[in-house]
Structure formats: C-alpha cells, structure tokens
Design a protein around this nucleic acid. Structure first.
Length: 745
DNA sequence: CTGAACGTTTGT
DNA sequence: ACAAACGTTCAG
C-alpha cells in the first residue's frame, strides 16, 4: 500500500517479520515484559510489542514494497542465477531508504554496499557515489532517523562534511542546525505545520526540546561525548578497523578516502549526532536485550559464505565472527544496521574500556569497597563483580563519571578467567552485583581478537617503543600458565591484548565452575580457544548459544554433566569446525533430544552445508551415560560420517543390536570407526564381538564392566581372528591386526 | 538512560 | 476490520 509513501522521500519503510526464523516460529513466552502486557496474558495491551523471544532475526520488506523506479515488487523468483535474483530483488537503501530493483538503476551497482545482516538492505550506489553516509540521510529535521548510534556516528560523521543532499543539495548546512523541514522527516512530522509554531502537540514540543538540547551542547562537550574509547586511546586501530561495516559486503573497492575516514575517529562530533547517539543507544540497549543471536548468526553464516565482508577481516578470527552481528527485532535497515554496527562497536569499546580500567587498576584497589556490600564468598564475589562490571562498563562515560575517580579500581574488562585470577591476586574486596546476568549477556557482543592482537610494539612512557616486539613477548608468554597470563594482562593495555592471543589459549577449561558469568563468556570469545571445556557447569542455554555462535572455529567442546536444557542450544547452531563433542552424563537426554541435535536443520535452505547435519565433521563423539537407544544411534550413523571415536560407555540401552547398527554394511561408520568405548554397557553380550570385525580401522574396543561380555568370549574372539595365539586370560586382549579389546575379567 | 506508551503500518 | 507489532516519543 504505502509503497509510494516511503522510499523515495526517505521515509523509512517498516519491516516485518520474516516468519521463517526460529524466533518467528516460536510461540510467545508469556513471561517477558511484552507478553505480560498483552491482553491475552492478562495485561493492558498498551505496549504493543512483540514477545522478546519472538523478535524476528531477519525482518523483511513488507509485501507491499515496490520498486521506486518501476513500481513493481520484487521479482527475484522469476529468474535463476544469483546475480539475476539480486538484480530483480528489491533493495532498500539504509541511507536514503529508497527501495529499488538494482536492475532498475541505470548507474549499475558497482558502488553499492550490501548489508549482509538484513535481507534486502544495502547502501545504494547512488548514495555511495554521492558520498552519503547514513548520517547524511537522516540529517534533516528530525535528526532521529538518521540516528547514528554513538560509535558508528563517529564514522559517519567523518563523511558528513559532504552536503546532505536529498533531492537537492543543500549548501552544507551547519551541522548543528537541522534544516527545519527539509528532506526526510517522519510522516507524522511532515503533516505538522512548520516547526516554528509552538508545540503543536506535546509531542512536537518534546522533540524540539530534544533538538535544542543537542544543539546547545558546547563543542568540547561534543568532543567528549560520543567518542568511543578506541577513539580516545589512540591505539585503537584494531577497533577502528573492526568497526568498519562489519556487516557489509563491498561491491567495489573502497576508496582510500573512505579508509581515511574510518581511521580518524577523533574528530569532534556534530551535536545532532549526540542526541542521536543517546537515542540510538536507547534503542540499542533494548535491541540488544532482545537479540536472539542464535538464529541470526546461523542464517548469516550459512548465507554469506560467498564474499568476504570487511568486517570479517577486521573483526576476524574464525569465521565465527559472523556471529558478532546480532539478531534483532525487526527494524528498518538503517537503524538496524546501525544497531548492528553499534554492537560491534560497543564490544570494542568495552574491551578497550576494560583494558583501560584494567590498566588503571594496577595502581590499586582503592575503589575496592565501593559499595560497601559484603562479599558472599570468593567465587560468588568474583562472578558477581564481573556482572557488576559488565553492567557498569557499558558506557565509558558513565564509568568515568563515577565519583571518586573510581574507574581505576574496577576490573573492567576482565574476563572471567582473568578476573578470578586477579581477584585472588589482589585480594580486593568483592562486590556483590545486581543480578542480571542473561540480559546483559546479550548486550555484550564481543568480537574475537585478531590472530595477533595489536599493536606490534610496546610503547613506553618515554615515547619510544620497547625493544622487544610483540612476537618476542608472545614467545615468552607461551611459557606462562593461564593464571600467569592473567596477571600479565594487568600490566598494561598492550600486554592485555597480547595475552589474549588465541595461540596462548588453545584450550580453556571452565569445568566445574558453579556458574558461568558474562565476563567469562566474553573472555572466551576474546581468546577464541580451539577447545572449550564447560563440563559440570551450570551454563545456561542462552549463554551457550551466545558462545557457540561466536566460536565458529571451535574444534572441541566438552559439555559433560551439563543439563540438556542448556545443551539443547547446540540444536540451534551448526559447527563446521567441531571435531570433538562431549555430551557425557548430560541429564535428561532423550532420543528426541539427540534427534534435534543430529538431524539437519529443517529450515535450512537447499544447498546449504547445514542440510547435511550439524555434526558433519565431528570425529569424536562422547555419549557416555545417556539414556539413548538405537534410534539415536541410527542418527549418529547417518549424520556423523567422520566419526572415528565413539564413547557409548554406560549407555544402558546399548546392546548387541546397537553394535550391529554401527557396524552394518550401510553404516558409514563401519569404515571410519577407530575406537569405541562400550564399557558398562550391560546389555552387550559376547554376540557383539564378531561384529567388530566388520570395522577395518577399529583398533580399540573397550568392553570393561560389561557384565555379559565374558573374558572367554573375548579370548575366543581373538582366537578366531587369526593365528597368533591369544594371550592367556585377563585384559586386555590384543587381537591380531592390532585390535585391542579391553575387558576386565 | 530506561521503560512505557502509542500512532501507525502491516498482514490476515 | 482487526490483531500484531514497528518505530518513535516521552516521562521519570
């Protein structure tokens, strides 16, 4: 309907649910704020918001959207190839908000920048050619719309010198003043009489106040405010780079000038941007809370394989960085993109902030008793403090504003690991924190560190660099324990970064931690371990989801003793790199659960690798102590074709038939299995023994504690296997072909 | 800054 | 026409 209304004039078109993502498909939780507001849940129905758990992760253009140029809807369905599809799909520009078919643009699309995070969203070639940024576009009357989110604003801002041009080029208006009723305002506002008229409505008055406030900001205030911490610290190349359009694909090279812009975050910001920022912040926070990272990540990781996005290179790491994006509630492309970008930024910012505080923290725990509450105990304190920190570190300004110059004391940026050590090390009083772990969690998007955290050298107070460069230091760090590394991280910001080098943290073990804190999680992400042990922790599903979506390079994941409730998070992601998955002794696992995990995602699009199952490359699977039956084993057979080591010990339902399944002619595992642990499987009998011969590579079978497998049977089996006489009685039996049969007598 | 409110758009 | 819910504004 409103096709005409929006696009061209810069009014943003609302987006709507995709209806396909996990979030869209689930039911309302009935427990979140918004659900409780709903009439159906007995609320007043005033908020009119969708359930937090149902925030669409890939909001789409409404069906009514049409091309501004030809007036027709998206026609990608009518053609085949990728490119044709793209050319005939509707693309909404996050800058000017115009919706067009790329094919309808006469100018070609080489300059466009596709936003990967949001379907059908790009920065159109027109805007790019004209040098417009998001900021420009919203820049008129309302100021709201263009809404740079803080950090991002920096980036946009720098491009802003360019005149805002909408339909006409304005002669570079003073940034502070928003041109009254020019180009894009919200529809509502357009309908209102000219702004000079007093408050039409409370509404209007409010808005003006807002603007006024913004424009009144003293210039130095401006400088202070929205600069992300990386802007302040100056060593922030990494973050700066990481911040560049992490969610976009550039269709053509970025000009050098663009790069410069992105590298000069220190410039003062326009006042309007500030109000925008706070506004945006607000939405951002809300947005973050609502994120369901999971699905989004999943989607994006499967759909964006074709090109590199800038961001990935910057934000780096394993391909997992795609997880850095975020899901979100449906939002207009502009704001959504900004939010997303802001997420990345906020992560860097936080990290940096953390580093900063960390550095300052060296000087002591003066702040220690800041709120005088009693610690509950070492561990709890530690964790709570972390939470607290997390909550508080969100805005660097805020942190800095804290009376008493306390910022130094807070161990901000610490990761859980880090924190624990530091806490113990300094023996600071511990501060209980407000309980808001999970929501916070989602606010913290942490980008993985680069392979070699910058900078290359260690700046000294004298201004020169330390003679030992990063590589040398890293060689030293390699010899330190994790704990010692954590201590080193406190030395200075540079060390803090270097010590996060993922080569130093190939394994992270948090097993048996009572609880996993947000800081621990972000610490894990910063370090990008190849192996992660979370066994016997109380990690929650959300946390696990959050994690695994940011650890796409993870090779080993140990979840022994966690609850299925949490582990079920695995069923919402895929793990291209995972080689070892340990699910031993997980409570309440049923066949249906494993099915969820093993079966390829039903919603996967054709052609996706995911459609072959999530554990496609897993070579070692540990399922000890689970109540699974042959039904699950069938799925294992089918969906873990690379499996070489399988641990089914103490699985009560595993019997001879199970072995038959695994070793049957049509089982891919027949050829891949090298080790199988069946100890404690009391349904097994001697009958299963011959079946193992079917597996040419099988070199080790553990049958200890199998009540009905007899030593005699094993001996007989070994004898039958071929000439060399079997060992006498007693385990293990070494059969010909180097097969090792473990059996207690 | 945050949560609440609500006009308006969107899909059915 | 109605229900859902997006995006913005406002009050505290």
């Amino acid at each position: 309907m409103s096709s005409s209304k929006g696009a061209g004039a810069g009014s943003r078109r609302r987006r709507t649910r995709c209806r396909k993502c996990k979030a869209c498909q689930r039911t309302e939780c009935g427990e979140c704020h918004f659900c409780k507001d709903m009439k159906k849940f007995g609320g007043p129905g005033r908020m009119k918001q969708s359930c937090l758990m149902r925030q669409c992760t890939a909001p789409v253009l409404p069906h009514t959207a049409v091309c501004l140029l030809c007036g027709e809807a998206g026609k990608e369905d009518t053609v085949e190839g990728e490119e044709e599809k793209f050319n005939l799909s509707l693309m909404e520009c996050s800058i000017c908000n115009e919706i067009v078919h790329p094919a309808c643009l006469k100018m070609g699309t080489a300059e466009a920048v596709i936003n990967n995070e949001i379907p059908n969203c790009w920065e159109c070639p027109k805007c790019k050619r004209e040098g417009k940024s998001n900021k420009d576009s919203g820049g008129d009357g309302t100021g709201k719309r263009r809404a740079d989110n803080g950090e991002d604003g920096v980036r946009w801002k720098l491009t802003d010198e360019v005149a805002q041009h909408k339909k006409k080029l304005l002669p570079a208006p003073p940034p502070a003043e928003e041109p009254p009723a020019s180009a894009h305002k919200r529809k509502k506002e357009k309908e209102l009489p000219p702004p000079d008229t007093g408050p039409k409505k409370k509404l209007k008055g409010g808005r003006e106040k807002h603007l006024k406030k913004a424009s009144e900001q003293p210039s130095d205030g401006n400088k202070l405010q929205p600069l992300p911490s990386w802007g302040r610290v100056g060593s922030g190349d990494l973050e700066v780079k990481g911040s560049i359009s992490h969610s976009t694909i550039h269709l053509s090279q970025i000009g050098p000038s663009d790069l410069e812009k992105t590298k000069a975050p220190q410039g003062p910001l326009e006042p309007s941007a500030q109000s925008d920022k706070s506004h945006q912040r607000e939405k951002l926070e809300r947005f973050k809370q609502m994120c369901q990272m999971l699905e989004r990540v999943k989607n994006s990781s499967s759909s964006s394989s074709d090109s590199d996005s800038d961001s990935d290179t910057d934000s780096r790491g394993s391909e997992g960085s795609s997880g850095g994006g975020a899901s979100s509630r449906a939002a207009s492309p502009a704001s959504r993109a900004q939010r997303l970008a802001a997420l990345g930024f906020s992560a860097s910012e936080e990290d940096e902030e953390e580093d900063e505080e960390e550095e300052e923290g060296r000087n002591g725990g003066s702040e220690a008793a800041r709120n005088g509450k009693q610690p509950k105990g070492p561990r709890a304190n530690c964790q709570e403090k972390e939470n607290h920190h997390r909550a508080a570190s969100r805005g660097s300004e805020r942190a800095k504003q804290q009376p008493g110059g306390r910022k130094g004391g807070r161990p901000a940026g610490q990761t859980g690991l880090h924190m624990v050590t530091r806490t113990q090390f300094l023996q600071w009083p511990l501060v209980p924190s407000p309980p808001k772990p999970l929501l916070q969690l989602e606010r913290h998007v942490v980008r993985p560190p680069p392979d070699s955290p910058e900078p290359d050298s260690l700046p000294l107070d004298s201004g020169s660099d330390h003679v030992m460069q990063r590589d040398v230091w890293l060689a030293v760090f390699q010899h330190l324990s994790y704990r010692e590394l954590c201590v080193c991280m406190r030395v200075c910001r540079t060390w803090s970064r270097w010590c996060c080098d993922k080569r130093l943290w190939t394994r992270i073990d948090l097993s048996r931690r009572k609880s996993i804190t947000p800081s621990m999680l972000s610490g894990i992400i910063r370090r990008q371990p190849g192996s992660l042990d979370l066994s016997w922790t109380n990690i929650s599903k959300k946390q696990l989801m959050w994690l695994i979506n940011r650890l796409q390079g993870l090779r080993e994941l140990v979840l022994t003793g966690c609850s299925w409730c949490s582990v079920s998070a695995l069923s919402t992601a895929s793990f291209p790199s995972l080689r070892l998955l340990d699910l031993r002794w997980i409570e309440d696992v049923k066949d249906s659960h494993l099915r969820e995990l093993l079966l390829p995602p039903t919603d996967s699009k054709p052609g996706q690798t995911e459609s072959r199952g999530r554990l496609q490359n897993v070579s070692e699977l540990r399922l000890s102590g689970l109540d699974i039956t042959d039904a699950s084993l069938r799925l294992v057979v089918r969906h873990t074709p690379q499996l070489a080591k399988l641990d089914l010990s103490h699985c009560n339902h595993v019997g001879d038939q199970s072995v038959n399944l695994l070793t049957a002619a049509n089982s891919p595992l027949r050829d891949s299995l090298a080790e199988i642990n069946l100890s404690g499987c009391n349904r097994l009998t001697d009958q299963c023994l011959p079946l193992f011969r079917r597996c040419p590579r099988l070199s080790r079978v553990d049958l200890r504690s199998c009540r009905h497998v007899t030593p005699e049977g094993c001996v007989r089996f070994c004898e039958d296997s071929g000439p060399p006489a079997p060992p006498p009685a007693g385990p293990p039996f070494r059969c010909p072909e180097e097969k090792l049969l473990l059996k207690d007598s």
